[in-house]
Amino acid sequence: MGEAVDVFSFTAGEAEVDGGESIGAALAKLGDERPDIVVVAPDLSGAPIAAIFAARHPERVFDCGIAECNAMSVAAGLAASGYIPFVLQMGAFSALKCAEQIRTDMAYTQLPVRILSAWSGLTMAYFGTSHHAVEDIAITRAIAGLTVVAPSDPHSALALLRSTLDHPGPVFFRIASGDEPRLYKGIPSVARGQFLRLHEGRDATIIATGLAIHWAFAAASMLEGEGIQIGVLDAVYLKPLDEAAILEAAWETGRILTVEEHNVAGGLGTAVADVLARNGAGAKLSVHGLPDEHLLVARPAELHAHYGLTPEGIVEKIRTLLEAR
């Protein structure tokens, strides 16, 4: 008899953060304070990110059934009528399936819809290629007028939720499971278009996003024991992108490694390369992510190990980068 495969549940957003709040609880609390917040979901109103809100404000939750595109456009109609809709979507189906509703109904119209795109990257990878969400950074970054953020833990998620609440245009949240281990001790202070610095370093800089920042931070700690100083930047904003921080890293450390749980074609690494090239910054760049091919299907941890998306894999990439002339 085999073991039960425990790789996924709908628990995203259940993890408690400081003050006993989870993302779901924080959303419900925002709903208590703001009657203009509504939740739209395609058969996800029972998922923890939405469930507490739904229990407290059932009249402001609209579950559209398994019809993602309709849910997006319904949310846009609510936003055009004075509401701030939070649309909970599965990462594999949000940007990819609803790119056009995001572009035409939210971004072109500049309406304040918030897309909570949860279970992104390889979170649901066990279920097959259909459930891999590794194209969403490329898609969303190409949409004019869309803000793209990627919280890396519940604390940064809360910071981004609150700080973008009154942004006039749409915001896409790329969330992994929503209950990652804590990375920030308290709620970090985030500013629009700026990365968060997690570690100082002079030898190289890692710029990572989402889950990858956890591995990057661990890798930097491992290398510190050998006297190698690696700066770590958390790309919580993917659009607008923190060009100043990228250029500063290029000038100060001369070597940059990007890490992401996303296709290397069109992701964070591509965006950083673009900034460096446009500004004539001569830093050495290494892009680490998922290869541009159909990925294997397995438990997320097995896939992370296979593709080197681990602290050890990142240490290896850094060593190669430091050796490069």
């Binding site: 609209f62 109609g77 055009a80 009528s81």
Partner: peptide, 8 residues
């Protein structure tokens, strides 16, 4: 779909 949002 947008009309549904407005009607809601």
């Amino acid at each position: 779909s947008v009309g549904i949002g407005m009607a809601l």
